[in-house]
Structures are given as structure tokens and as C-alpha cells.
Amino acid sequence: MRTEFIEELTRLAERDDRICLVVGDLGFGVVVDFAKRFPDRFLNVGIAEQAMTGLAAGWALSGKVVFTYSIANFPTLRCLEQIRNDACYHGANVKIVAVGGGFAYGALGATHHATEDLAVLRAMPGMRVVAPGDTVEARLATRAVADLPGPCYLRIGRAGEPTVHDAEPEFRIGRAITVREGTDVAILSTGGMLKTAVDAAELLGADGISARVVSMHTLHPIDEGAILRASAETGAVLTLEEHSIVGGLGGAVAEVLAESASGVPFRRLGTPPRFAPRVGSQEFMLRQSGLTPPAVAEAARGLLLRHAALGPLMTVPEG
């Protein structure tokens, strides 16, 4: 996804001289073309993410559209105060780009595991939170984020993520994309888990279970309509994310379902809210968290079986 991001950003910068890029002493294999072509709009601030964010906010308030770029936790958690007070408080055109969400840098341990970022950034006033599901969405999300006024968070994969969409779908911030229709269960996915959701739906289909797959590429503002349609038109709802089950997509969907009193069977699939006791490759970390197509399919089956065993929800008679 990072390749699609930087290529699209470079194309946008050709047409819009407001677009700038600030990095925290990394990504040179990716950003070198942008830096050569637009030297007056590129800065490497070194390993100083707090300064990077404050500088980006000041640059943005002078009329620029400024993208900051770093690994996972570093442009988010390390400089959260600057994001809150400099970017969000002033509504600055700062676009925070985190490469390697979730366990993309799995072998480097908890300092490089981005499993709380969506929850934290979703709570920032005025912040839009976007996590595209594949390479196509990453390109479209970059374009949409650049056009949107105010602060945004764009969470992308490190590299090598599979392409799910055969053609460009309609992409709007705050509007989910239905990738696959289904009536028995809905899998709402965000970020790089989209291919896992599609593969799980294929496994369920082999068992005669019709699974809807929805790419929830925007966590804030969340697409309440897509959530409520899934709850009304299918028999159960699961959320799927490479992020803690606390406060990310699962938390956002739970809030909508609870306030709507839909009563649909619901389960959050993500990482447990603790530091990983073992580290390894991204694939290893996902297996440890039960975030594989067979595990997701089994969770969906279990949710449907539990609902069938419990029967319909009890209703309270009027009067």
C-alpha cells in the first residue's frame, strides 16, 4: 500500500503546489522520487516526530496541505499531544500517514506493533480516520484525504498487500464499500484484513453460509447506515481488524449497534488488549491472534450457531 500512497501523492503534488511531505528519517527507498522532484516541499526532520507534527501544523496553517509519514506508532502515539493541540485544535491540514499498521513490523516487538492507533486517533476532535483495505483503496484514500480539509489519519500497510478490487469502486470518506453481498452473516473489515474477510466468506460459502463483506475503510466518521443495514439484512455481524478489539472498528460498530438496539448477534475479532507475549512475522502474529480466514470463518459459524441455540431475542409486551 505504501507504494500506491507515494505514487498517488506524487501525482497530486504535480497538480497542487500546496502538497508537502515531512518524514521522520525513514522511507528513503519510497519517498526519494518525491524529494527529488519537489525539494522545496519535502523535509526530513530526523527522529523527532513531535517536532515533525508541530512543524507540519505550522506549515499547514500557512496554506499548505502537509503529509507526515513514519512507521506505525511513531507519527501517532509518540507525538499525540502535538496532534491534539497543534493539528486538531487548529483544524490544520495535516495528514498523518502511518505505514505498517498492526503487525506489519511484527518481529520488532511491541514498540513497532500498531494495535491502539485507530482507537486513540478516533477519539481526537475533528480527526478523520481512514484505513484502506487494499492497494486500490490506498490510492483512492490518498486522493480523498488530500482533498478533505482539516486533519486526517491514513493508516496503510507496509508492502505486498493483495489487491481485492478488480476495478476502482466509488470511494468516499465515511462511506463503506460492499465487496460481497450476503444474507446470513456480515463481516465488517477495516485495513489490511479485507482479503482475509473475503477468503473467510469463500470458506463459509462452501458450507452454504451467505457472507456479506464490507470494507469499512473509514472509522471516523463511521458509516452508520452500512452497519445498520448489515444488522437488519443479515443474521449476525462480525468486525475484523488488525488492531485491539478495544476502541477500533469493533468498538465503533458496537456503539452504533448498542444505540440502535438492533439486538443482532455481534462479535469483535481483533487482537487482545495486551502486549504480544511472543513476536515474529506478520503472518505469525496474525495466526497467534486468530486473524486467519479459517479462524474468522469458524468464529462466524460459532456466532450463528449460538444465535440459533438461543433463539429469537425476548421482547417486552406493550403496556
Rank of each mutant, 00 (worst) to 15 (best):
A87V: 01
E259I: 13
T239K: 03
F171C: 01
V145N: 05
G150L: 09
P273T: 09
R15W: 12
I71N: 04
G160C: 08
R287F: 09
T142N: 04
L240C: 08
R37S: 13
Q82F: 10
L61H: 11
F34M: 10
P272F: 09
H217F: 04
G133S: 07
V65M: 09
L108T: 12
P317F: 10
P125E: 08
V30N: 13
G302V: 11
E181W: 09
A308E: 15
L121R: 01
G191C: 06
P125K: 08
S62Y: 15
L203E: 14
N44C: 10
A297C: 09
R306D: 15
E255V: 13
I47P: 02
T271V: 15
G205E: 00
G126A: 03
T239V: 14
G235Y: 05
R172H: 14
F5Y: 12
R84P: 03
D184E: 08
I222G: 01
A206W: 12
E224G: 15
A236L: 05
C152Q: 05
H113F: 01
D16E: 12
V198D: 02
A295Y: 05
F171E: 07
L204K: 00
T196R: 02
A35H: 08
A236I: 02
E161A: 06
A300K: 00
M193T: 13
I177M: 07
G302C: 11
T196G: 08
G182Y: 02
A159R: 13
S215P: 06
T234P: 06
V129E: 00
E49S: 03
P272H: 07
I71C: 05
A57R: 00
Q50E: 09
A254T: 09
P75C: 07
T190W: 04
A236M: 08
A141I: 03
E202V: 15
V97D: 04
G58Y: 02
R155S: 04
E283F: 15
E202K: 15
T183C: 12
R15N: 14
R11S: 11
G102W: 02
P312S: 11
G174L: 06
A201L: 00
L303P: 02
R180D: 09
L154W: 02
P277S: 08
G109K: 06
L291F: 06
G63Q: 07
L203D: 07
G251F: 05
L148C: 15
I156R: 01
A146K: 05
R301Q: 03
A138Y: 00
A236E: 04
E161L: 14
I96F: 00
E14M: 12
L310H: 15
C20Y: 12
Y153S: 00
G225T: 14
A56H: 07
L257D: 01
D147Q: 15
Y69R: 03
I177Q: 06
E259Y: 14
